Amino acid sequence: MRVFSAMLMPLVLTVSAAAQDVEVSDQAIAAMVQEAEIGSGVASYYGRELAGNRTANGERFDPDELTAAHRTLAFGSKVRVTNTATGDSVIVRINDRGPFHRGRVIDVSHAAAREIGMHRSGTARVKLALLNDD
């Protein structure tokens, strides 16, 4: 066993040195983040006419930020919203309460709606996954 460890140690050191030189891409980081599916349903988005209004957590709504409203998730939670028709997804931060329209599960900002291709139709069927980046 001691001989095997002595042979393996230089290999481990080489791999660790090489790993330090590698840049971590956004996709690699996303793969490291754990996700838990929390449901699906219909999403809608906030119009630009609400820009500047206060959200439930007290900040001003900016339609160009990737934010969303959810009825129960904690403020600051990160959620991956995936358009089931296109497979496009976006990560949003919860900063408001809603939606209050029957049958909707999340309201996203205009920027998030553009990212997943629902800005023209106004609504889309989506899957939601809560991100846990601990």
Results as ranks from 00 to 15, higher is better:
Met1Leu: 09
Met1Trp: 07
Met1Gln: 08
Val3His: 14
Phe4Glu: 12
Phe4Asn: 04
Ala6Asp: 03
Leu8Lys: 06
Leu8Ala: 15
Met9Ile: 13
Met9His: 05
Met9Leu: 15
Pro10Tyr: 09
Pro10Val: 00
Leu11Trp: 14
Leu13Arg: 06
Leu13Lys: 10
Thr14His: 11
Val15Ser: 07
Gln20Phe: 13
Gln20His: 10
Asp21Lys: 14
Val22Asn: 09
Glu23Asn: 10
Val24Ala: 05
Val24Pro: 06
Ser25Gln: 06
Asp26Gln: 02
Gln27Val: 01
Ile29Gln: 09
Ala30Gln: 11
Ala30Asn: 12
Ala31Lys: 10
Ala31Ser: 13
Met32Leu: 13
Met32Glu: 05
Met32Asp: 13
Val33Gly: 07
Val33His: 08
Gln34Arg: 15
Glu35Lys: 08
Glu35Pro: 02
Ala36Leu: 05
Ile38Lys: 04
Gly39Ile: 03
Gly39Met: 03
Gly39Lys: 02
Gly41Tyr: 02
Ala43Phe: 01
Tyr45Gly: 02
Tyr46His: 12
Tyr46Ser: 08
Gly47Glu: 08
Arg48Trp: 11
Arg48Gln: 12
Glu49Asp: 14
Glu49Ala: 08
Gly52Pro: 12
Arg54Ala: 14
Asn57Trp: 00
Asn57Asp: 15
Gly58Lys: 10
Arg60Ala: 15
Arg60Pro: 03
Phe61Asp: 07
Phe61Ile: 09
Asp62Gln: 08
Pro63Trp: 07
Pro63Arg: 05
Leu66Trp: 04
Thr67Ala: 00
Thr67Ile: 12
Ala68Gln: 11
Ala69His: 04
His70Asp: 10
His70Cys: 05
His70Ser: 12
Arg71Ala: 06
Leu73Asp: 07
Ala74His: 04
Gly76Gln: 07
Ser77Tyr: 01
Ser77Leu: 04
Lys78Ile: 02
Lys78Cys: 02
Lys78Phe: 02
Lys78Asn: 03
Val79His: 00
Val79Glu: 01
Arg80Phe: 00
Val81Ile: 03
Asn83Glu: 12
Thr84Leu: 15
Ala85Asp: 14
Ala85His: 07
Thr86Arg: 00
Thr86Phe: 01
Thr86Leu: 07
Asp88Ser: 12
Asp88Phe: 04
Asp88Val: 00
Val90Tyr: 03
Val90Phe: 01
Val92Arg: 02
Val92Lys: 06
Asn95Pro: 06
Asn95Ile: 09
Asp96Tyr: 12
Pro99Ser: 13
His101Val: 15
Arg102Ala: 12
Gly103Ala: 06
Gly103Glu: 01
Arg104Ile: 11
Val105Gln: 13
Val105Lys: 11
Asp107Ala: 08
Val108Glu: 04
Ser109Val: 08
Ser109Pro: 11
His110Arg: 06
Ala111Glu: 13
Ala112Phe: 11
Ala112His: 09
Ala113Met: 05
Arg114Ile: 13
Arg114Lys: 15
Glu115Phe: 00
Glu115Asn: 07
Glu115Lys: 14
Ile116Lys: 12
Ile116Asp: 13
Gly117Ile: 10
Gly117Leu: 11
Met118Trp: 13
Met118Val: 09
His119Met: 06
His119Glu: 15
His119Ser: 10
Arg120Cys: 05
Ser121Gly: 03
Ser121Trp: 03
Gly122Trp: 07
Val126Ala: 04
Val126Cys: 07
Lys127Arg: 15
Leu128Tyr: 01
Leu128His: 04
Ala129Met: 04
Leu130Arg: 05
Asn132Met: 02
Asn132Pro: 05
Asp134Arg: 14
Asp134Trp: 10
